[in-house]
Design a protein around this nucleic acid. Structure first.
Length: 494
RNA sequence: GGUCUCGUGGCCGAGCGGCUAGGCACCGGUCUGCAAAACCGUAUACUCCGGUUCGAAUCCGGACGAGACCUCCA
């Protein structure tokens, strides 16, 4: 089966076909850097990280662009007191707006690295592309699809619908937008039509982030940066545009308008949207104040957290569900994820140190299982990046590995099959799912535990089991687990 | 109010018309000084009511429930 993706634009699973034969252009909406990154950000970045990794695994050369929105945009566009979010944060924290943006950009990047997310090929900043945005806006005006009022520029939706189909992505129709109109809020509005959206906003004197433009001093509208930057680095149209579900409307709908408005071409062939992380069934969001930041998860410092959860646990937790479904946060499911992750990680280590004994007897049944499981790994990922199914397949591998290394009656398979199993497991576990071992044990710890294991062994030899158990128990309290193997050797797990 | 999505066993979560998803937890067994791990085995499902079909968790209609978007949001 070839790669199929669920295209939110058409609402269907489609065969994925890239524009260039062996290359893919992918753009994903990154964060607005005015606050701590939370679980929701992790979901989006992990989703597209795995998509990026899998496309690369399939042999595509991927140019992956993920922006940083470092202009805060308005808290409330309809209200004159609407304040730029980054500017507001800067006022509260008594910093330069760019200090705020820089700080949260740094925090975001650190968290991404902790989650083993590969850096995008290009990570453009909105403020670094003001000329490009102005240029794009000018093109739209030139094409008669935007108008200037009082130093601000708005997209002319009414003119747009004369030429193009509006609401393709969000399924919204203009009549609906009219019906939902907040006419009562529009007293001071400059827009000709309430569905029009800002491309450029005039800045007041005390607005801290502002730039010179053909329309006077101001700052760009929220949606235009993605159009300007994606077209600059990926061309038009490009292959994949990703982001959270909540961005479908108005943000992505506006991007389609802007792209058609400026270039007469739709921006992208495949729209992919990840679903939300919920907390007690409610969307986790900054604006709702019910979010848990990534650093809180890593350290366990949040009243809702029973314990700290490692970055890989978070990553695994998210990958256990398909990206298109919501996932509900709970301590129970995080702990379950932690246990499951440990199992797969241990099987991986066992396999890593396994070498097939030279033998002529080969278990046909197991041989077949290996091939089938390899197959199901690809099937899972080709089916719209179904990581939940992939993980189920990896547990299949785990079972096979334990059969091979059974201390009593190990099953034999051919060296070729072992290699196949090993390569596939490594590819999918490490390269595609991006799971990395977390406890790089320092040599000192290894030596120290070696001493304790030796002392315990002496106690065991003397049949002083209470002493032996005491050592094991005390280590257990420190989170170190001792396991006595069949061969008499003891191993430890942090 | 409008648009849309979803409702699976104790918990999480695949499934898109017939064939064991998987994980976590639980229980029984093998192994072990005891644990742990591993292995073998048992159990627990498809919100409700109609319909289509030889056959439905899966398709259609309805009810109830939950959520998302319609303002900034991953």
């Amino acid at each position: 089966m070839s790669l199929h993706v669920y295209n939110t634009l058409t609402g269907k699973k489609e065969v994925f076909k890239s524009i260039a034969k062996n290359a893919v252009g992918m753009y994903v909406c990154g964060p607005t850097v005015y606050g701590e990154p939370h679980l929701g950000h992790a979901r989006s970045s992990i989703t597209f990280d795995v998509i990026y990794r899998y496309l690369t695994h399939l042999g595509y050369k991927v140019r992956y662009v993920r922006n940083i929105t470092d202009v805060g945009h308005l808290e409330d566009e309809h209200n004159e007191t609407g304040e730029d979010k980054i500017v507001k944060k800067a006022r509260i924290e008594q910093l330069e707006p760019m200090e705020v943006a820089q700080h949260y950009t740094n925090v975001y990047r650190q968290a991404m690295h902790a989650l083993n997310i590969i850096d995008p090929s290009i990570e453009p900043l909105a403020t670094g592309h003001i000329p490009e945005q102005i240029e794009t806006i000018a093109k739209i005006i030139e094409n008669g699809l935007a108008y200037e009022v009082n130093g601000s520029v708005y997209f002319d939706v009414q003119a747009y619908v004369q030429r193009y189909h509006y609401g393709q992505l969000s399924g919204r129709v203009l009549e609906e937008l009219l019906a939902a109109s907040r006419a009562d809020l529009e007293g001071t509005n400059e827009k000709k039509f309430h569905a029009d959206f800002a491309l450029w906003k005039k800045a007041g004197k005390d607005h801290l982030m502002q730039w010179q433009s053909p329309w006077g001093r101001g700052f760009p509208g929220w949606h235009i940066e993605c159009t300007a930057m994606s077209s600059k680095y990926l061309g038009i149209p490009f292959d994949i545009h990703g982001g959270g579900m909540d961005l479908k409307f108005p943000h992505h709908e506006a991007e389609i308008c802007q792209s058609l408005g400026a270039y007469d071409k739709p921006p992208v062939n495949y729209w992919l949207h990840n679903n939300m992380v919920t907390l007690n069934g409610q969307k986790m969001a900054k604006s709702k104040g019910n979010f848990i930041t990534l650093n809180e998860l890593f350290s366990g410092s949040h009243s809702l957290l029973q314990k700290a959860y490692s970055p890989m646990t978070i990553r695994f937790f998210i990958l256990q569900a398909h990206y298109g479904s919501t996932i509900d946060f709970s301590n129970e499911s995080l702990i379950a994820a932690e246990n499951a992750l440990t199992k797969l990680e241990e099987s991986y280590k066992v396999l890593d140190s396994y070498s097939a004994a030279a033998t002529s007897s080969v278990d046909e049944e197991t041989e077949k299982e290996v091939l089938e499981t390899v197959e199901s790994c690809y099937e899972a990922m080709n089916d719209d990046f179904n990581t939940a199914k992939l993980i189920a397949a990896l547990f299949g591998f785990s079972k096979i590995i334990h059969k091979l290394t059974d201390p009593v009656r190990p099953v034999q398979i051919s060296a070729k099959s072992v290699e196949k199993l090993s390569d596939t497991y490594r590819s999918f576990w490490r390269d595609v799912l991006g799971m990395r071992p977390e406890n790089a044990n320092s040599e000192k710890i290894d030596d120290l535990l070696g001493i304790l294991i030796e002392l315990r062994q002496q106690a065991k030899d003397d049949k002083n089991y209470s002493h032996a158990d005491l050592i094991r128990q005390k280590l257990e309290h420190l989170g170190i687990q001792l396991k006595d193997g069949k061969d008499g050797a003891t191993s430890y797990f942090l």
